[in-house]
């Protein structure tokens, strides 16, 4: 067994020289003072202003907010796909750039973005085939692509091409692809947004099952309050234009969370709290308060 779950001090003790360890603190992701302004001919639009929060190792954080709250921009900055104008991002003690270079960042975009000429299995193997130098510096993933795919219920379609699968199955392949190379952190940008409600529910719980098995650090972006509450340990509610952290709503529901969790009073209470925060995020910035 590899040691993604080991406490950091233990990781440091058993770490071999020259090997990259998953950070030396209990902080998985630290976002501090991140700001971003997009400039165009029509002027400047402030997308994010002074966004700060910390995702502890092994925690599932969800960002939720109205359109224009810069959720995806923030995720892209964390993923190293976009430069922040102010502030910085530290992933397990490394800069975002280095984390990518060391293949510590698993990214699941809005669309599955599978390569149509590759089979399901070949698509999931893709991250293992690029930037091999980074792979050599770390332990081999604890689970093979085949194992991950069969956990996701895709064991029978390994040799199919993406076009032969439904939208929900394609999205599951995209998630499997992000898990396949055992990154330290998973960044998911509304991965279920294009799916119908029933498929979304199914995928939510499959994602939870997969997550329960190794408790990866996750930053998940969504529009759906229910989705946020079902999945998360903490919900980061963003306000719009510029995107700021409106509130951090902890989700203390017990894990593992089955499908019945959505029927509990506690669930509804948290859902209500998130909705209230979102409503005040829509209003004037001065109206919103932290919770």
């Amino acid at each position: 067994m590899t040691s993604p779950l080991l406490p950091p001090e233990r990781s440091a003790i058993i770490g071999e020289p020259g090997r990259v360890e998953r950070g030396t603190s209990s902080d998985g992701l630290v976002v501090s003072g991140v700001g971003k302004t997009f400039r165009s001919r029509d002027g400047a639009t402030s997308a994010l202003a002074d966004v700060s929060f910390t995702v502890p190792r092994g925690r599932f954080f969800t960002i939720i907010g109205p359109s224009g709250s810069g959720k995806s921009t923030l995720l892209r900055i964390v993923a190293g796909l976009l430069e922040a104008d102010q502030g910085d991002v530290v992933i397990f003690g490394e800069s975002g750039r280095n984390a990518s270079a060391n293949k510590q960042v698993g990214f699941v975009p809005q669309s599955p973005a599978l390569l149509p000429w590759r089979t399901v299995l070949e698509n999931v193997r893709l991250p293992l085939q690029v930037n091999r130098k980074a792979s050599e510096r770390r332990d081999a993933p604890s689970r093979s692509p085949e194992e991950i795919l069969s956990t996701m219920g895709l064991g029978d379609v390994l040799d199919k091409r993406p076009a032969q699968l439904s939208g929900g199955m394609q999205q599951r392949v995209a998630i499997a692809r992000a898990f396949a190379f055992d990154p330290a952190i998973l960044l998911m940008d509304e991965p279920f947004s294009s799916l119908d409600e029933l498929t979304r529910e199914l995928l939510r719980h499959q994602l939870l099952d997969l997550w329960e098995s190794d408790h990866k650090t996750v930053l998940f972006v969504t529009h759906s309050v229910t989705e946020a509450v079902v999945l998360s340990d903490m919900i980061v509610v963003m306000s719009a234009q510029p995107g700021r952290v409106q509130a951090l709503v902890p989700v203390s529901l017990p894990r593992p969370r089955g499908e019945l969790v959505e029927l509990t009073d506690e669930f509804h209470a948290i859902e209500r709290q998130v909705r209230l925060e979102l409503r005040s995020a829509w209003g004037e910035r001065s109206d919103g308060g932290g919770s």
């Binding site: 993923a79 796909l81 990518s100 270079a101 669309s111 599978l114 390569l115 690029v130 930037n131 692809r177």
Partner: peptide, 17 residues
Amino acid sequence: DREALDVLRTLDASRWE
């Protein structure tokens, strides 16, 4: 596919890759 390109960039794939 821009998002597939994003996935490769987060893996720090080289230009050649």
